[in-house]
Design a protein around this nucleic acid. Structure first.
Lengths: 209, 209
DNA sequence: AGCTTGATACCACAAACGTGGTATTTTTTT
DNA sequence: AAAAAAATACCACGTTTGTGGTATCAAGCT
């Protein structure tokens, strides 16, 4: 295959070890070529502008901005950009937000390399690629109401071990309002108490400790 | 350098992508040779028996048994085994347990490859290698009393959103005893309430959600 | 203009939680 | 054999949390 006909890939990840592994595997494919790498979101945008890759592999958490924000920034300039999110493990919320932001695929770093190269080929052909396990996980919470920004804020305060009174002070609202927010977020998350709300929030990627 | 003089390395990790990266980097060193790989703890033990590597890179979480248990199993047979733990990120408790189990080093997967190859060389020479950041994190909780097995069990129940009464039933003890355990574990962790106890427990690697 | 959503606020009540102290038994360590 | 640590249990008391219901206001959508 001529070099200019290969699928040109950009890899964005802050782990050099993993980038190395991806580079080895991608360049081992006769129909692919790793044209650039980036270790953070800013670099990712620059490298995209410079190389206009056919497919971009993007880690979800980067040192500067989140992978989702990098994705949004890139798609704002290059609407047709084909980006596959690649992450260790995140909750359904991260998957959903990625797809809403226009990601064409979503892979776990623990998946076999075969899965990754197939995803690159499919996405390059204009298809989408979300593994069945992740699709299933996503589907589990599809009907669920999302937490509001304020509710997330309150949930973060709860995780910090704050009492309702302290949360009220920090957010400049009354203790009763805090209670209302907690009631709502517990309902939405299906939590029996504030502690489980934090546990579920962490598992689903809504908050991080 | 003759092949038999090279540092012979075994890599244990369930992420094929990362193994590939490590393989590329290790084999790129003139004084190193990746002699075997393993994707889980059982394989790791078999491969160690077969190849007797000079240095082993071991992921902390594996599909079958924990990396620490694999380390213990290997060191039970081969006391002089030189093992470096390699992980994405864990709390101080994991670091401490690894070192107690006889690990010679502890690295994060996010560290530059240079750090890893230096660690392999140093450990091969009989030295230990713990990066300053991790040593500092470890030192922060050195004087702390560890949670007892029962306290950890209770903490796990708390994280599940159980009330004291439910925990009592599950563990076949009285509600009052549960309260005592919670009081103690909160003191040890420096938590203001049960929710913060869970958050701290997760951050420090004492429990996982 | 009407509707929905998010955020705010208050009240009252019951349930659960956290704190103080004391005490027994078993296991482990010295 | 003595001491220390871990797990068990009970009581009393005040604090915090969670539930129910009602209501206002602003912003955004139809």
């Amino acid at each position: 295959m001529r070099e200019q006909d290969r699928i040109r890939v950009l890899c964005v990840d802050d782990h050099p070890l993993l980038r190395e592994g991806i580079a080895a595997i991608v360049n081992n494919q006769p129909d692919m070529l790793l044209v650039a790498e980036a270790g953070n979101g800013g670099e990712a945008i620059q490298q995209f502008r410079k190389y206009r890759p056919d497919v971009t592999l993007m880690d979800l958490r980067l040192p500067d901005i989140s992978g989702i924000d990098a994705l949004i920034a890139i798609r704002a300039e290059f609407d047709e950009a084909k980006v596959v999110m690649l992450t260790t493990y995140e909750g359904d919320v991260e998957i959903q937000r990625s797809l809403e932001a226009g990601a064409r695929g979503y892979l776990l770093k623990s998946m076999p390399p075969k899965e990754m190269i197939e995803a690159i080929r499919q996405v390059h052909q204009g298809k989408k690629r979300i593994p069945a396990e992740l699709a299933a996980q996503l589907a589990e919470h599809l009907g669920d109401e999302a937490l509001t920004p304020r509710e997330i804020e309150v949930l973060e305060c709860i995780a910090g071990g704050n009492r309702n009174r302290d949360i009220a002070e920090q957010l400049f609202i009354s203790e009763e309002t805090v209670k209302v927010h907690i009631k709502h977020l517990m309902e939405k998350l299906g939590a029996a108490d504030r502690t489980q709300a934090v546990a579920i929030g962490v598992r689903r990627g809504i908050i991080q400790l």
